[in-house]
Amino acid sequence: MRMRTVEIGVGAFMLAGLAALIVLALNVSGLNLSEQSKGYKVYARFENIGGLTPRAKVSMSGVQIGKVTAIRIDTRMLMAEVEMEIFNEVDYLTTDSSASILTAGLLGEQYIGVVPGADEEVLGEGDFIEDTQSALVLEELIGKFLFNKVGE
């Protein structure tokens, strides 16, 4: 009789632990079990990527359309090269779209904001976004401000 209580208790405990793990995976960390929306790779070069990290969001008009998958240095052009994976469903980014590194909120993480252009053709696998805007670096801003002030 006592053994039965023990077994039931232990079984319930293990279930609770498993449930906790599932909650942690799905609700807390947003683990995407559904097929990671497959996407196509798009590249962009920046002078300065600021605090951009891999897995940062890529969004258009505030809606996420992909994520940053890798950040490298392009040794030919000596600039930073960001590799992004754009969701397959987002197939309307024109070739003259622009990509800027923006900051979410005052202290927030940095992400890439894409503004589409007006071209006929759209970006495909392996294409580059030519029009880029680097991250704002505080020291440069202050420098520019002081420079302007001096000029006045």
Partner: peptide, 8 residues
């Protein structure tokens, strides 16, 4: 298991 339950 206890740590996960604690977190949740």
């Amino acid at each position: 298991l206890l740590a996960m339950i604690f977190a949740v």
